[in-house]
Design a binder for these strands. Sequence first.
DNA 1: CGCTACCTGGGT
DNA 2: ACCCAGGTAGCG
Length: 284
Amino acid sequence: MAEVPEVEIIARDLRQAVVGRRITEVEVLAPQAVRFPSPPEFVSALRGQRITSAHRRAKFILLSLEDGQTLAVHFMLWGSLSLRPVGSERPPESLVVLKLDADEELWLTDTLGYARMAVARAAELTARLKLEELGPEVLDADFTVDRLASRLSRRRSPLKTVLLSQRVIAGLGNRDADESLWKAGLDPRRLATSLTREELTRLHRAMREVLEEGLSLRGTQRDLFGVKGQARHRRNVFECTGAPCPSCATPISHSRVGGRNTHWCARCQPESGTPAGPTQGLLL
DNA sequence: CGCTACCTGGGT
DNA sequence: ACCCAGGTAGCG
């Protein structure tokens, strides 16, 4: 439920509503949600700190603290952050609660319980979370077709598998990878190294459009304030197995690629040859 | 590099 | 009663 558009929306909300505020209390309700340091050290590292900035890198949210440390948050599959007035009823899936200036609370919630937080000085955090090893951000202005081409040339695996690796390219999750490949008219099972220049151009454009659209609709989930995003009904292939392709009406195929659920249109995304591609189709 | 564990709620 | 999940670390 938490792909890059959803994470970016929360990061933007945090920049607006949480930066400049002070963490006055910390409650660790689920100790496994704190990656490092130990939960008691985590609490004392955060307590009293003012939050000075909020950024996203891949699917991490990074909150800078005034003493130079950084709080990292990762939602994994179903995690989220919510900002609510003190006294609001906390959902049972709350993992960590940060009280802000005595009047609001920031909740890390996750029904699956995989979401994680970590605190350390920037250099240590970068090393332990391997942030330097992450690939270029799809949404960055300097992410060019050339950059995509050189990143994809590094691994001989199925396109879908390579696109999901944040160490190759940072930006696509399972849903957005399937949607991007559909828009680009590319079979997810093709070797990542096999794309022509024209196909790379289509993929580059599709990836950026998919993420931008998700952002403009404010994601599929609730934002920091509990408002639902509108992107959830804008899927063309993801979890649409058997439904007609929006471009050509062929039933959408489904299988596992690299252990992940994968959905595509066998007609618009042929294994080889010169596809028409849904971008030249009737819809969207 | 590909597979599995991690965990709980909701869907089948 | 199963089964499965939009992510990732860690293992063989």
